[in-house]
């Protein structure tokens, strides 16, 4: 299960970046982008169903594996074509490609575990559930936010 982002919650503190960097020997897979000082957006691999990175990876290092796009460092040639193919710009490469591995085999990715604002989740429904809950509440109290 990939990591889902609730942009309304992110406070741009970069705890996820620092945690990810620590867990991956100094090569982080997540980046928090500030948006004009009004919001911040954590960017990381979406683990696409039809993953273009896996499609273009001729060495077989990137493959779709159930819910995730897995990466086998031993097969990576460091060519960097995956970084070009990724529609979200979240793969980078030095002599090796670097992308989110969901902290496999840990139960929970470290970015999700550490997020101080609970803006990251592995539950795909959590963001829409929060919005639905608020809307439902508003309709109960005469269309107004409660006080």
């Amino acid at each position: 299960m990939p990591v889902y982002v609730d942009v309304l919650r992110c406070i741009g503190c970069k705890a996820c970046e620092v945690a990810c960097k620590r867990e991956h020997n100094g090569k982080p897979h997540i980046a928090v982008l500030p948006a004009e000082g009004r919001a911040a957006v954590p960017l990381l691999c979406h683990h696409c169903k039809d993953a273009t990175c896996a499609l273009v990876c001729y060495s077989g290092a990137l493959t779709t594996d159930g819910d995730r796009v897995s990466f086998d460092a031993a097969k990576c040639t460091g060519c960097g074509i995956c970084a070009l193919a990724c529609p979200f710009g979240v793969i980078w490469s030095d002599k090796l490609a670097h992308k989110c591995d969901l902290c496999y085999p840990a139960e929970l990715p470290s970015c999700v575990a550490t997020c101080p604002a609970q803006a990251l989740s592995t539950d795909y429904d959590v963001v829409s559930r929060r919005v639905r809950y608020k809307a439902a509440q508003a309709s109960v109290i005469e269309g107004k936010r409660s006080i």
Binding site: C13, A15, V18, R22, S110
Partner: peptide, 19 residues
């Protein structure tokens, strides 16, 4: 570092400094 989801205040969370 391991996160501690049982902690009464942090619930496992840490900020960048803690991390």
């Amino acid at each position: 570092i391991e996160y501690n989801p049982q902690h009464p205040v942090s619930h496992g969370a840490l900020c960048p400094k803690g991390n």
